[in-house]
């Protein structure tokens, strides 16, 4: 199969390297590209489902998106097998894992709320991440970290999944704000019709935040366990740890406020959006800036 594709590419005068295929990486990159194609079809179907929420496009999207996730997961495992280490040391791996987790969350969210259109709205950012992962193969950007390898994979995995969850919660929060605004202002357009109910959005946003919080807690715990080996006695003064703790505390405060004072609806939505904005600053500006070579 691999030779067949190489021959086909060569017949068009395009060298395989132009697609980023080099040596053994072709196995998982081909699977990744197939997954990307399936995600593209799935997103297109979800967009069509906005026009007819229970039409053929919506039903097809339910089949295509899970298939895309499955192929994506296989490509991730294949990359792990080929490279021999958990594939989070490159931008391709990091974006890929983020997008896969976010799409899994979006599909679960849509299934739970019965609105395939929500998958389109929530899948937009992960889809962009996939495109970035696709482009990153041409630059081979490596991530660096001082954490011992034994802690690195588990730490990065937990943190990336929490990042996915918080981004999904922010997207869901934005949908919640839109639906709440329509209900308060009594303006109901076609987009509103395709959206899940307010309570479903509230419930799923909250669950997603809880999921993200659990993974972030695990990621921080693993990071702290490996930190003394990486940064010596003053490990607790590292900016990444402190900023992660800040994010963790923020979400922790929200969970307490929800349980005690019933912060929901608009408050939850605003919190999920602002919480993710802080997360973005923390991860992208502080962590990524230090990790990327």
């Amino acid at each position: 199969m691999r030779d067949l594709i190489l021959t086909w590419l060569a017949s068009d005068g395009i060298p395989a390297s132009a697609w980023g295929y080099r040596g053994n990486n072709m196995q998982y990159l081909l699977l990744f590209d197939l997954a990307l194609a399936l995600y593209s079809v799935g997103m297109l179907l979800c967009a069509l489902a906005l026009l007819r929420p229970k039409g053929v496009a919506a039903r097809a999207a339910w089949a295509v998106l899970p298939a895309a996730i499955l192929v994506h997961a296989v490509s991730f495992v294949a990359q792990w097998r080929v490279e021999g280490i958990f594939p989070l040391h490159t931008l391709l791996g990091a974006f890929s894992l983020y997008a896969m987790a976010a799409f899994m969350g979006a599909v679960r969210f849509s299934h739970s709320t019965g609105s395939v259109s929500a998958a389109f709205s929530l899948g937009a950012v992960p889809y962009l991440a996939l495109l970035m992962a696709f482009l990153s193969r041409f630059h081979g950007v490596q991530l660096k970290t001082e954490l011992p390898p034994s802690f690195l994979s588990a730490h990065l995995f937990a943190v990336m999944v929490s990042f996915s969850a918080f981004s999904l919660a922010a997207g869901s929060g934005l949908l919640l704000l839109a639906v709440e605004k329509a209900l308060k202002e009594k303006r109901f357009g076609p987009f509103w019709q395709a959206m899940p109910s307010l309570e479903a959005l509230d419930r799923e946003t909250f669950r997603t935040i809880v999921t993200g919080f659990c993974f972030l807690s695990a990621g921080i715990a693993i990071g702290v366990a490996g930190a003394p080996q990486a940064w010596g006695v003053s490990w607790f003064l590292d900016g990444r740890l402190l900023s992660s703790l800040l994010v963790w505390s923020l979400y922790g405060v929200y969970l307490i406020a929800r349980a005690r004072y019933g912060w929901r609806g608009r408050k939850l939505a605003l919190f999920s959006v602002s919480g993710f904005a802080l997360t973005l600053v923390t991860y992208v500006l502080i962590n990524m800036g230090k990790y990327v070579l």
Binding site: R52, G55, T113, G114, V179, L183, W192, Q193, P196, S197, L198, E199, A200
Partner: peptide
């Protein structure tokens, strides 16, 4: 294939539709 029966067209039923949009 059409939205001909999708939304409420009586005042009493419109209340139900709004309730479903809030609570599912």
């Amino acid at each position: 294939e059409t939205a001909i029966g999708r939304n409420a067209v009586s005042v009493s039923y419109a209340g139900v539709e709004l309730a479903r949009k809030i609570f599912g």
